[in-house]
Design a protein around this nucleic acid. Structure first.
Length: 431
RNA sequence: GGAGGGGUGGCAGAGCGGUUGAAUGCACCGGUCUUGAAAACCGGCAUAGGCUAAUACCCUAUCGUGGGUUCAAAUCCCACCCCCUCCGCCA
């Protein structure tokens, strides 16, 4: 959420910054609501003040035994009470409308974010390594999965429909190895605190990180089967529970930054992507991901973003994969992000770079929604900054490994860092 | 699933219809004392919203959450959420 005070103080700046994200802001609607809010709030509060004073007097008169005088004021206060309820009804409906409007506004892009609205306008910040040079026609992961009998879409769809996968044998093992490798790398070498989290969370938690209320159709919702009860949502990323660990808390600034890592499944309805990436397991309703989250002092979040990006890159470097880093343009930024680096890995099967990680600084946008704060010295509590990044998407990483490490005979070499987890240096297709 | 107990400031813990944003203790900050530290003593110390140039003053709200009763609710009533103990069941 943006700071409501910023909208009041410098609406022009907010409007032009939102425009960089491709968002048109309804100025007139906002100004009307804001004017109403101010008028109604002032009115309601001054009436409440009179009632408070009156009630105090009644208390004093009653104790002094002046019942008749007390009764007179009681009558007056009863009228004020009615006036207050009338004003408050209007006030709460305008302030709800205002909150609703505010909850739907995305974070503002940082100055270092390039202009643009299309994917092609993202800026390549770095390109690392080089594509493997195959002396044969490389297969994609679907063909390799078939050859190794390691990936089974057909049986998965019989269980759950499209966009689900079953993996077995070497592929299943590779999937596990990748998760372990990433978790160990981040917790042992990058200083992250390994964390396990719930996969089902309340709506308020998703509101905290910005998935709700605007993107409900992207989520799987789980009502309790007995009809009543509360609704919970399957997490679309571990960013949601990890970041919300700090909701409604005030931490000591000395304890910052907090750096957390979790390996979880992620669930996405993919409502807006019918027909996209239908082949293979690139885009699934359920996938595993190792997620990195930082909770920082507001003064150090930009430095943290560079470090976070480095930690995600280290995963790919360890696997010796070819990738590039994009500085996303304003129009391509996510709802909560002020700046995002995407890591795209080279997939020989598709002959292109595809997203495997996204690292974002959300500044105080999520912190304000969650009321995640810190206390620095004697001052008032201040909002923290939150960052998140994939470190990295496991299923997509598996695709990258098998496609990049395939051999002419269809076997797949195992990257050195994974050998301890795999117990073998090579996956050989079954006869 | 059954039976009880409980949610109050950073923590512990009083208050159970009236000038209570809330006693007291701990923690924390400032000061006195001390060569220094500790102890002791004195003072300060919630959060949010509004107004505002202001992190000043003032106003409003907040004692798990939401409703209700009342001139007035931390205190009474209702619903819900969460936590704890015991029993049963269970990965």
């Amino acid at each position: 959420m943006l700071d409501p005070k910023l909208l009041r103080a410098d609406l022009d700046a907010v409007v032009s910054q939102l425009a960089r994200k491709g968002m048109t802001f309804d100025r007139a609607h906002y100004l009307t609501l804001e004017a109403d809010r101010k008028r109604l709030q002032l009115e309601s509060e001054s009436l409440a003040n009179r009632r408070k004073e009156g009630s105090k007097q009644i208390g004093q008169l009653m104790q002094a035994g002046k019942i008749a005088e007390a009764d007179a004021i009681k009558e007056e206060m009863a009228n004020i009470g009615e006036a207050i309820s009338a004003i408050d009804a209007q006030f709460s409906s305008t302030s709800e409308a205002l909150d609703e409007l505010l909850l739907h506004l995305p974070n503002l892009p940082d100055a270092s974010v390039p202009d643009g609205f299309r994917e092609e306008e993202n800026v390549v910040a770095a390109t690392v390594g080089s594509a493997p040079d195959f002396a044969f026609e490389p297969k994609d992961h679907v063909a390799l999965g078939e050859l190794h009998r390691g990936i089974d879409f057909e049986r998965a769809s019989r269980l759950s429909g499209s966009r689900f996968v079953v993996m077995q044998d070497g592929f299943a093992r590779l999937h596990r190895a990748l998760g372990q490798y990433m978790l160990d790398l981040h917790s042992d070498h990058h200083g992250y605190q390994e964390t396990t989290v719930p996969y089902l969370v309340d709506a308020a938690v998703l509101e905290g990180t910005g998935q709700l209320p605007k993107f409900k159709e992207d989520l799987f919702c789980i009502p309790e089967s007995n009809g009543g009860g509360r609704e919970r949502y399957l997490i679309p990323t571990a960013e949601v529970p990890l970041t919300n660990l700090f909701r409604e808390t005030i931490v000591d600034a000395q304890a910052l930054p907090f750096r957390l890592v979790a390996h979880t499944p992620c669930f996405r309805a993919e409502a807006g992507s019918y027909g996209r990436d239908v082949r293979g397991m690139f885009r699934q309703h359920q996938f595993d991901k190792v997620e990195l989250v930082w909770i920082t002092h507001p003064a150090s979040s930009w430095d943290a973003l560079e470090q976070l990006r480095g930690h995600a890159e280290a995963v790919l470097q360890g696997l010796d994969l070819h990738y590039r880093v994009l500085n996303l343009c304003g129009g391509d930024l996510g709802f909560s992000a002020a700046k995002t680096y995407d890591l795209e890995v080279w997939l020989p099967g598709q002959q292109q770079f595809r997203e495997i990680s996204s690292c974002s600084n959300c500044t105080d946008f999520q912190a304000r929604r969650m009321q995640a704060r810190m206390r620095d010295g004697q001052g008032k509590p201040e909002l923290v900054h939150t960052l998140n990044g994939s470190g990295v998407a496991i299923g997509r990483c598996l695709i990258a490994v098998v496609e990049n490490y395939q051999q002419a005979d269809g076997s797949i070499n195992i990257p050195d860092v994974l050998v301890p987890y795999m117990g073998t240096k090579r996956l050989i297709p079954p006869q």
